[in-house]
């Protein structure tokens, strides 16, 4: 990579962010969502502390509705790198049988993601929490800081954000308060893929086109990943050549028709594609300004 390439600059900037956060943290942790952004963030963390293992564990919030391929990829990755992986689920929610089908998109996300995350962070006292969110994903994220302060209840106050000057973040806080740190804030989807290609970073195969069983709902392709998927009367899964641009919980993440079977194909596809990545994420369409609401409540 040439030293003047945008990608090179982004990489170095992100490493700087990761080091700064860890240097001022008591108990750092990296949220690992198994997706492409997490994979890139993890690679940057390895580079930031080479030859030492990153001095923090990975944390995965397992809603139990992740694609099966994601879970096996997660476990392989942690084993290969020898990095501690903490997984947590909202046990109470599981007992009550909360699923995307039973409780609807919003309640499900609130209970199985937001609550589970809060519980995990509180019980272990993590104070510096890395996330792979990018500003180009959603309007309200465009205004979030790289080092984003959260009060004792994990709430984000969009109007009370701390200014970020130069590369000198104000990371002072009181007990119980924390920071979400987004080292990939300035990356775009295309940057992520170009970096994956350049660094040969392994990602979940679901990102590449293959024949997969899907049903059509509201004009979107939903994959039938296991027998828990509730089919409407008359709905029949059929095989289609699809891939995912973003990976969440499988009933809530739509696939796109695509022939891109390799990283290079994906990059070519993105360079010509005309829809945004989040168009495949059903939770965002739920309500106007929905992401901002979720964040104020403590969803990442």
């Amino acid at each position: 990579m040439n030293k003047t390439d945008a990608l090179h600059l982004l990489e170095h900037e992100s490493i700087r962010i990761i080091r700064e956060a860890v240097a001022e943290a008591e108990r750092p942790v990296m949220l690992y969502s198994i997706g492409k952004d997490s994979s890139v963030m993890l690679r940057l963390a390895l580079k930031a502390f080479f030859p030492m293992k990153p001095p923090f564990p990975l944390l995965h919030v397992d809603t139990t509705w992740k694609f099966r391929e994601m879970i096996s990829f997660r476990d392989e990755t942690a084993a290969r790198l020898g990095i501690e992986l903490i997984t947590c689920s909202n046990e109470e929610g599981l007992r009550q049988g909360v699923t995307p089908f039973s409780h609807g998109c919003r309640a499900y996300t609130e209970i199985m993601k937001t609550d589970a995350l809060r519980q995990a962070l509180d019980s272990r006292g993590f104070d510096m929490i890395f996330g792979g969110a990018r500003r180009d994903e959603e309007k309200s994220r465009a205004k979030e800081r790289i080092f984003s302060f959260r009060d004792g209840g994990h709430r984000w106050d969009p109007r009370g954000q701390r200014p970020e000057l130069w590369s000198i973040p104000n990371l002072t806080k009181n007990r119980g308060e924390s920071f979400r740190v987004f080292p990939l804030s300035n990356w775009t989807e295309l940057d992520i893929w170009r970096y994956i290609a350049h660094e040969r970073i392994p990602v979940v195969p679901l990102y590449f086109a293959a024949q997969r069983p899907v049903v059509e709902r509201n004009g979107q392709w939903i994959m039938v990943d296991d027998e828990r998927m509730e089919l409407a009367p008359g709905e029949m899964p059929r095989m289609k050549l699809v891939r995912f641009r973003t990976l969440g919980c499988y009933p809530l993440t739509a696939a796109v028709e695509s022939r891109a079977a390799t990283v290079e194909d994906v990059i070519l596809e993105l360079e010509s594609v005309r829809t945004s990545e989040r168009a495949g994420r059903l939770i965002d369409f739920d309500q106007a300004g929905s992401m901002e609401k979720k964040k104020q409540e403590g969803y990442f």
Partner: peptide, 26 residues
Amino acid sequence: DGLMAEREQGITIDVAYRYFDTPGRK
């Protein structure tokens, strides 16, 4: 004008970041 509050008030209250790619630079 990303933030809801702003959209309602009709003014911009914070810094918003946008990214764009051109063949020459980002």
